[in-house]
Nucleic acid binder design. Structure first.
Lengths: 221, 221
DNA sequence: GTCTATATTGAGATAGAC
DNA sequence: GTCTATCTCAATATAGAC
C-alpha cells in the first residue's frame, strides 16, 4: 500500500478543527502534524504549504454554498420564500460544516492579507451576489420595500445570518428550521410588536404569501 | 524639552491606521516606527510592547462606546427609540473612529488568541449587555415581539449594525442619520412590503411611538 | 527620548535517507 | 509516505551608548 487511505482528508479535517478553534495563525504545521500523528515534514508530501490546506478547506466550503444556494434559486420561488430558504440553507451549512464556517467568519483578515486567496475571495463574492439577486428580485416584484436601498439590506443580512450560525452546532438550544423562521421573520416582518405603516408599494398585493411554517403564517392561522 | 509633545498619540493614531488597513499581524513595529519617523527600538520607550499599543487603542474605543451608549440610556426613552439611538450612536462612532472600528471588527481572532486582551473582551461584553438590556426592556413593555427569543434578536443586531458601519467614512454615499433610520426600520418594521400579522402582543397599544424622522413615521405623515 | 546593534524565538519550508 | 535534520527568515524585543 502506497498510502494510508484518507490521510489527505484526515489532514484537512484535523487542520480545519484546529484553525476554527485557535485560529489559522496560531495553529502551527507542527501541531497539525502532531494531531494527525505524523511529523511536520510529512505534511508537505500532501500539500504544498499551510495555506494550500486553508485554501482547500475554504474552496470546498464555498463550492458547497454555491451548489446549495443554486438549488434554492432553481426552485423559482418568490423572493420572500427564496430569502427564507437561503437563510435556512446557510444555517444548515453552518451546522454541517461548523469548522469551515468559523474559519470563514474569523479569518477574513488573514485571507485579505494574502493575494494567494484571491480565488477564495472571488468565490465569496459570487455567493454574496446570490443574496443580492434575491433582494433585488423582491424589490422589483414589489414584495420587498423600495424605500430602502437594496444595498443597505444586502449589507445587513448575509453577515448577520452567518454570524447567527456561529456556534450553531448540534448543541445550542435552537433547531435549525425554527431559527431560520425566526431570523427571516425578523428581517421581513420586523421585531416591533406593532406592524408599522409603509411607504412605497405597501398597498399592493404581496407577490408572495408567507411561506408555510413561518412565524407570520402561524400567527394568522 | 524632554519629549516631543503628542509623540505617544502620534504612535497610537499611526498604528491604528496601519492596523486597520493591513491587519495587526502584518503591521510590524518597524513599519510603525518608520511611519512615525523613529527607529523601532524607540517605540519601546513609550509602550511596553506592540500589544500594549493595540490594547490602548481598543480600550479607548470601547470606553467611548460605553459612555455614548450610557448617554442614550440616560435619556430614559422607550425601547424602540433607544434602539434607534444606539444604532445611530454606533454608526456615528464608526465614522468618528473608523480605524478602531475596523480593528475591532477584523481582529477578533487576534484578540481571542491572547489572554492579554481579557480586559478588552470584558469591556466588549459590557457593551453587548447594553444592547441586550434594551431588547429585553422592549419585550417586557410590549413594544417588541415576545414570540422570538431576545437572544436571537440580540445575536443578529449589534454585529450587523457594526458591520454596516464598515467603511462608513466621510465618503460612502449615505449620511449617518438616514442610514440609522433605515437600519432601525428594517429591524423593527421589516423589509417586507406588506405588514405581516403578528403573534403575541400585537394587539396592544405600542408603548412607544415611532421616533421622529424614521421612515415609518414619515410614511404615516 | 532616540539611536545602533543584536539577542531571541518561532514558524514555515526543504533535502535526502529510509 | 514518512522520518531526521536543518535551513531560512522575519519579527518582537532588549542593552547600552549618546
Amino acid at each position: 500500500m502506497t498510502e494510508s487511505v484518507g490521510r489527505r482528508e484526515l489532514i484537512l479535517t484535523t487542520a480545519a478543527e484546529m484553525f476554527a478553534r485557535k485560529g489559522i495563525r496560531s495553529t502551527t504545521v507542527r501541531e497539525i502534524a502532531d494531531a494527525v500523528g505524523v511529523l511536520s515534514g510529512s505534511l508537505y508530501h500532501h500539500f504544498d504549504s499551510k495555506d494550500a490546506i486553508v485554501q482547500e478547506i475554504l474552496m470546498g466550503f464555498l463550492e458547497a454554498i454555491r451548489i446549495r444556494y443554486g438549488e434554492v434559486l432553481a426552485r423559482g420561488q418568490g423572493a420572500a420564500k427564496s430569502l427564507h430558504d437561503i437563510v435556512l440553507t446557510s444555517l444548515q451549512l453552518a451546522r454541517e460544516q461548523p469548522d469551515a464556517t468559523a474559519i470563514y467568519q474569523n479569518e477574513l483578515q488573514y485571507l485579505r492579507e494574502r493575494p494567494r486567496f484571491k480565488d477564495v475571495q472571488a468565490a465569496a463574492a459570487d455567493v454574496q451576489g446570490i443574496w443580492l439577486g434575491v433582494i433585488e428580485q423582491g424589490v422589483a416584484d414589489g414584495s420587498f420595500r423600495d424605500d430602502i436601498a437594496p444595498r443597505i439590506f444586502h449589507r445587513l443580512v448575509p453577515d448577520a445570518v452567518w454570524l447567527s450560525g456561529r456556534g450553531h452546532r448540534a448543541d445550542g438550544g435552537y433547531s435549525t428550521e425554527p431559527l431560520a423562521d425566526a431570523i427571516t421573520s425578523i428581517f421581513l416582518d420586523g421585531f416591533s410588536a406593532h406592524p408599522a405603516p409603509r411607504k412605497g408599494r405597501s398597498g399592493q398585493v404581496p407577490a408572495t404569501a408567507p411561506w408555510p411554517g413561518s412565524l407570520a403564517s402561524e400567527a394568522s392561522a
